[in-house]
Amino acid sequence: MTHIEELAALLDDAARDARPVAQIDPQGRLGLDEAYAIQKASIERRARRGAPRVGVKMGFTSRSKMLQMGLSDVIWGRLTRDMQVEEGGCIDLGDYIHPRVEPELAFILKRPVTAGMTAAQALACVEAIAPALEIIDSRYADFKFSLTDVIADNASSSGFVIGPWADPAQDFGNLGLALAMDGHVVQIGSTAAILGHPLRALVAAARLAAQAGEELRAGDVVMAGAATAAEWILPGQSISVEIQGLGQASFKAN
């Protein structure tokens, strides 16, 4: 087993067992290519267990977060079949280490989106858009990690909930949204917080996937990135996001 495979197994086991591990690269000595290789190897382990990739998620799509992390580009991770939570369904917090939730907008594709496409060309490949929630859960102890740590750990992605699908012909570049917990609004934002327009996240997703030798395929789900800061998930909570004109996505935590 190579060093990449060993680290992929460590993180994969940590996710399956909901058991925190120490940072694998606290000094930031791994290259980005190595970090993404670990992520890919970890996701391939899931695929061999019957949970193939069904899409991708974008991370650090907020300009302020990018500056905070000293980045000039977004990061990405893979979504696998076992990560999807039924809309309105329940999660067991025992399956997570220290989960948080972010409100997002999701795309589903009717045609492949390839690197180099313009935003208009990418939009023509979109079947529908939807309000969505992403459950993030770093596998590292105390939620502490370097940039390469988080990339290797599938950009902290752990689950996603998709609301009702809607026509992408409407203008969704600056839709108001609210994240609520137990009926109380805890975050207010706009889809414009996602790189200025969520379509930019879709274009970036195609570019980054191509760099890894993959493509965004027909039927793939693309989570565009967080529109507000994340909130911790506590036992017994009902969590929802409502996006102007698109409706609501929700789940409960047990």
Rank of each mutant, 00 (worst) to 15 (best):
L133Q: 08
P26E: 11
G213W: 03
D220R: 02
D82G: 02
R207S: 10
L7A: 06
S42P: 02
R45A: 05
S146D: 11
V203C: 10
Q170I: 08
P168H: 07
G173C: 03
S138Q: 07
Q68S: 10
A130E: 06
A210H: 12
P99D: 00
P235K: 12
A155S: 15
A204H: 10
F107C: 02
A152K: 09
L79K: 06
A204W: 02
S158V: 00
L175F: 03
E242Q: 15
V126H: 12
L147S: 11
E215W: 04
M117N: 04
R100W: 01
A227H: 12
S250Q: 11
A37E: 15
D153Q: 06
V203Q: 10
E87R: 04
A180N: 03
V56I: 15
V126G: 12
I243T: 12
G77S: 07
Q187S: 03
V113E: 05
D33F: 09
A226P: 13
E44S: 14
E215R: 14
P52C: 10
A226T: 11
G88R: 12
A14V: 04
A37H: 12
A218H: 09
M181Y: 07
A37Q: 14
L7R: 15
A35N: 12
L105A: 01
E231A: 14
A128P: 04
T2S: 15
S158I: 03
A8D: 07
T2W: 03
V221Q: 04
I233E: 06
R63K: 13
D33N: 15
L105F: 05
P168A: 06
A41F: 10
A227R: 13
I97V: 13
I24Q: 02
G163M: 05
A204G: 09
G213F: 02
S156G: 01
I38Q: 14
G213E: 04
V54N: 09
E34M: 13
H197C: 00
H197F: 00
R217T: 08
A9H: 07
L195G: 01
A106E: 11
R217I: 02
